[in-house]
C-alpha cells in the first residue's frame, strides 16, 4: 500500500509506501498519520493506493477504522515569524516616510 498527500492546487506534498505492505502474513492495527507545520503544506487530499493486482502474492483486505484530524482554522492567525517580518516591513516604510519628510524640510 502507498500514500500520496496533496496540497492546494493538487501539488504533491509527500508520497511513499505505507507500513504493512509486502508479502507474507500481516495483521492490524496499523497507523498512518502526518503533521503539517505550515499553511502552505496543509493537505487538501490524501490517497491510499492498494491494488492487489497480482495473483501470486497473497491477497489482502484493508479496513479503515478510525480517522483523527485537525483542520486549518478559518481565518488562521499568521505564525510569529510572519508577524515579525510584517512588522519589519512596516518599519522600513516608516523609515522611508520619515527620511522623505526630513528631505522636504531641508529643501524648504
Amino acid at each position: 500500500m502507498s500514500y500520496t498527500i496533496y496540497g492546494a492546487g493538487n501539488v504533491v506534498l509527500s508520497s511513499g509506501g505505507v507500513n504493512a505492505s509486502g508479502p507474507g502474513t500481516a495483521s492490524g492495527p496499523w497507523f498512518f498519520g502526518f503533521i503539517s507545520d505550515n499553511a502552505a503544506t496543509n493537505a487538501t487530499r490524501i490517497v491510499f493506493t492498494e491494488t492487489d493486482g497480482d495473483s501470486v502474492n497473497p491477497d489482502a483486505n484493508v479496513g479503515y477504522d478510525t480517522l483523527r484530524f485537525v483542520a486549518q482554522a478559518v481565518g488562521a492567525v499568521p505564525e510569529p515569524s510572519s508577524w515579525a517580518m510584517m512588522l519589519l516591513g512596516f518599519g522600513f516604510i516608516g523609515a522611508v516616510l520619515r527620511s522623505r519628510r526630513s528631505a522636504v524640510t531641508a529643501h524648504s
Partner: peptide, 8 residues
C-alpha cells in the same frame, strides 16, 4: 485543509 491527520 488538514494541519494534522491520522488513520488507524
Amino acid at each position: 485543509p488538514m494541519t494534522r491527520s491520522g488513520w488507524i
